[in-house]
Write a protein that binds this DNA or RNA. Structure first.
Lengths: 240, 240
DNA sequence: GTGTTAACGGAACTTCCATCCCCTTAGTGG
DNA sequence: CCACTAAGGGGATGGAAGTTCCGTTAACAC
């Protein structure tokens, strides 16, 4: 596990002089404690959610003293933020299937599998909830998704290179368009996203990207209500 | 304001005999208290989020005794659930611009304006967070979005009627596809969704619906990795 | 190996929130 | 308008979560 960056890059308590615990002797027990606490925090989050996160419970799961958790992380929000830093480092490499639709489907399936996973799904729900309340968690969450989105944006750039979709396409917007429906379903419906939802998300993003919806310079921008000169796919009115 | 259904349809405490306070004398002060508490709860949620929701604070904002809030709602989760019931009843009617893209853009703009609103945006964030933890809130949230989505699904059905998009299109999936990117941006990035994001969301859903992505019977279902015989928009490889 | 001290761990203390009791206020029926 | 009682309000009580103190353990330097 990584070492040296501890519970965050900034000072937790605001004064610029105090050295955070874990930064001077990061090896051995300190690293072991950090790994153990982060795993326990993930487990507790997945089980009870952010509101039910009890730092004393985390400490006992991790077989660590409560004081240690309070001293090194200070609050539930900071603990989740550190967990996100850890998760961001385990980011998986993007796929290279040779076609944009193939890559987007791989991405959609990966996200879908994560969200329906009995541990990861509740964990992500809990983390999103934490970010809504705690500011340091929100920052860590944004950074986490920045990294993930940037990684997969390469697929879109490659597709532009191949001529599959128009130049000037905002790659990150395309990647976000794949994830968005899956997260929306997780948060607002009773059924977590299935394979069909994943395929639809990928196909929808692909078709829209192809039609120029995610161009950085938007053709229809000046007109407010009109469709602009967005090219409609195929011929209009076709009943398929 | 509605009266008579109080903090939920079921018994809060599980035993089927006790009558919930507010159900026998719902008029006058009781209704006034409910309205005042729900407004205060919304304000408090928007300001401090769900984790920071203090029922005593809600009570003092509403100029009501703490005991009253605890007796009638019992927990923060139940209070938010009741707030959602109230919000669902104030649902706005869908638009009828005559074109699907026009209707979807209206919907996207409505969602976008809600999410960037200084009160509504934080409120929705807080409610989503609450639903991740509390079960009764989650049920109320799902019901809320069911109602909203069903209302706007009419636009899609009308478009099928007009021949704009293929018959067999899952109308609710199209409506969800409009909202999803806006919520995703709200939750995972620092910039709340702007007008461009709203237009992109509407156009993306429109183009995908047109291409048959949201057909209930999916043409490419048997093949797992392939694109199926999904009709690509326009000609492939066009650089726009 | 040995010493220094960073980091950990247990326990008492404090604070804050949910609950309970009982009195007061005001809807509702006559 | 009056009586009855449902519903609201203030203060005391109990418990759980966070904080602090100080003794113990082990990382790192020499």
């Amino acid at each position: 596990m990584k070492d040296g960056d501890g519970p965050g890059d900034g000072d937790r308590d605001g004064d610029g002089c105090g050295v955070l615990p874990g930064s001077i002797r990061p090896g051995g027990r300190t690293a072991r404690v950090r790994a153990s606490v982060l795993r326990a925090a993930g487990d507790a989050l997945a089980e009870h959610g952010f509101a039910g996160l009890d730092l004393a419970d985390v400490a006992s799961r991790a077989q660590v003293g409560r004081t240690t958790v309070y001293r090194r992380w200070g609050s539930a929000g900071a603990l989740v933020a550190d967990l996100l830093v850890d998760m961001a480092e385990q980011s998986l490499a993007r796929s290279r299937t040779g076609s944009l639709l193939g890559d987007l489907k791989e991405n959609a399936r990966l996200v879908q599998r994560t969200l329906v996973d009995p541990r990861q799904g509740p964990l992500f729900r809990a983390i999103l909830a934490a970010a809504a309340t705690d500011d340091s968690t929100a920052r860590a969450l944004r950074r986490f998704y920045e990294i993930r989105v940037a990684e997969w944006a390469g697929c879109v750039d490659d597709a532009v290179e191949r001529g599959e979709i128009p130049a000037g396409t905002d790659a990150r917007e395309v990647v976000r368009a794949v994830s968005a429906p899956l997260y929306y379903r997780l948060l607002t419906t009773a059924e977590p996203p299935d394979e069909t939802a994943a395929d639809r998300a990928a196909e929808g993003a692909f078709v829209a990207a192809h039609a120029g919806v995610y161009l950085r310079v938007r053709p229809g921008a000046p007109q407010s209500g009109a469709a602009g000169d967005l090219e409609p796919p195929g011929e209009h009115g076709v009943g398929r």
